[in-house]
Design a protein around this nucleic acid. Structure first.
Lengths: 153, 153
DNA sequence: CAAATCCGTTGGCAGTGCCAACGGTGAGCG
DNA sequence: CGCTCACCGTTGGCACTGCCAACGGATTTG
């Protein structure tokens, strides 16, 4: 698409830059993950389960930014693949308890390394400190807090 | 969605941060533009016409990152609104010449100010220098060149 | 003149982020 | 206790976006 030849007013528009970057990032990550038959949401859910332990679909979805209606098929699939189990929560019969299985932990590690490689390709034009700066700035942006620990970093 | 409560492995994943930022940015920009009955692609096309002069739909699309199949409806609409004109290119009868009308130039200015406000809201958590850094980093990322004029910026 | 390339246009497809609504369940409060 | 409200999983659907394939027509290349 040759971004260099885009109109200056587009090239200088932060929202447009962010969007283009996200397009590129999504393509790369989706491609890499598809080589191992995974999707982005798979990593998100497995990571959430690993870090927070078993939880309801709604909770896990809230943490990952996944709508609870989309969680249904997601848990279906990861359960079918043996990475998680969906059980009835005895303490609250409205809820399902989603549980990370040992195979899921392994899967998470595999996806993690695939993703690490994808990040590396994605961020290839940036030096190590530039990557850290970008991550810090995006974190501020996304959390909407001027943490500003990076006055000089 | 409370990003702070997301799994650390998600919060620290650049591709995920970029995606979340793009989601937020798109929502804001789309919302603001919708108040004046415009879409993101409208600004892109008008800016391209203003900067490069009349051009074929394919050319303009290439510059803006818009598929040529999507350009059809876009030009249809902007032409119906009187902002551009679609003419036959006498020099090459395969092409249409898309031309910016005076009303289009005015429209561009209007969209520009709407967008400026949206950028400001979007980037509100960042200081001025942080905004410049972010823009520079994203530009490097998107153009895929380690320009690195920002060693200290 | 033949083949390859480009054009605009139509139609369609997959992924994503949502929302509404439902029956079932739990919590709070009178 | 009963009533209301909020939550849960699930289904179904919607709009938008970024793509791709294919077509007839026009142009360029060889």
């Amino acid at each position: 698409m040759d971004i260099e030849s885009a109109p200056a007013r587009l090239r200088e528009l932060p929202s447009w830059l962010i969007n283009q970057a996200a397009l590129d990032a999504s393509r790369r990550v989706t491609d890499e993950l598809s080589t191992v038959g995974a999707h982005r949401s798979h990593f998100a859910l497995l990571a959430a389960l690993d870090e927070f332990g078993p939880g309801s679909q709604a909770d896990l979805g809230r943490r990952c930014g996944i709508d609870r209606s989309d969680m249904v098929a997601l848990v279906d699939r990861l359960a079918a693949e043996g990475y998680v189990e969906r059980r009835d929560d005895p303490a609250d019969r409205r809820r399902n308890l989603v549980i990370l299985m040992p195979e899921g932990r392994q899967r998470l590690a595999a996806l993690e390394s695939v993703l690490a490689a994808a990040q590396d390709h994605l961020l290839e034009p940036l030096s190590e400190t530039e990557r850290e700066r970008l991550t810090a700035l995006l974190t501020m942006l996304v959390t909407r807090r001027p943490t500003s620990l990076t006055v000089d970093g």
